[in-house]
Nucleic acid binder design. Structure first.
Lengths: 141, 141
DNA sequence: GATCAAAATAGGAATGATTCTAATTTTTTG
DNA sequence: CAAAAAATTAGAATCATTCCTATTTTGATC
């Protein structure tokens, strides 16, 4: 792929993000996710970054993904009991799972909506994380 | 437990619910869930209904749960990648997972709130199912 | 109530995403 | 550079769930 190393410079990724040292493997995982809207699984990440790092192991991909999630650099998304998927969008948002195509779409909240405004939470509740998932289909219009 | 069979009559469960024939095993699964607020896992259901049906198998519990879910008699609830849990509350609601105690609480919507009102869904979307899960803790007040 | 077909169940094997373990390599620190 | 810490690798282990197949139960029909 490379003709000239200098022209092959890919998106610059800092040496550290949110206190997490960005090793080569973490960079590749992160770079791939940043360019994806498809919410890939760990295995899909693995297959893809093997192109750049042929010796990478699946365990490392899991380690990287976990580290990135824990440092709030990416998000983990779960649909029922399917394999976890990973998402670079850190804005508060939900996910719509289109059953017809199997694709997943981010779903924004309408402006000014605050999740905790619409739910009857027990008093003194500290919410750390919210996950909203929708299943359905895009009707042929 | 039984002194007098007649007095031991438990909650009457119809022979059929939503088109699903209520076999003995399905009855036991359903009856147990109806009396529980704890959102048990398949295995917890299994352990519990073995008291009434010593020969029941875990596979059957899974079969029963799936049948009940598919006929919209109970709901399946997933937290991240933890074992699925089951819930007899059919009202539209979310779940709050208290990390301190490990307990799960149903969360109602405030009156008049319509989920689709607050989300920016793609046009022509048919939503079949919504799942809202919250993780956090009940602060000591 | 006997008979046949369909549905449900039981038990155990198989699956598959994820986690764990131990050994090796890389990075950081003194 | 040496030692310690962190990250990576490969493969084994885990465990919830599904699958398979034989058996049992149920429902329909006579």
């Amino acid at each position: 792929m490379t003709i000239n190393g200098l022209q092959n410079r890919q998106t610059e990724i800092p040496e550290e993000i949110n206190g997490l040292r960005m090793t080569r493997q973490r960079q590749e995982v992160y770079r791939f996710l940043m360019g994806e809207r498809t919410h890939p699984t760990a295995n899909e990440v693995f297959i893809r970054i093997k192109e750049a790092l042929p010796n990478v192991s699946l365990a490392t991909v899991y380690n990287c993904l976990e580290a990135l999630v824990q440092h709030k650099i990416i998000r983990q998304v779960n649909f029922d009991r399917e394999p976890s998927r990973y998402c670079p969008n850190l804005d508060e948002h939900g996910h719509f799972h289109d059953e017809t195509t199997g694709t997943i779409h981010d779903v924004k909240f309408k402006p000014g909506i605050n999740l905790t405004d619409i739910l009857e939470l027990p008093p003194n509740t500290v919410i750390k994380d919210i996950e909203i998932t929708l299943r359905g289909q895009l009707a042929a219009s």
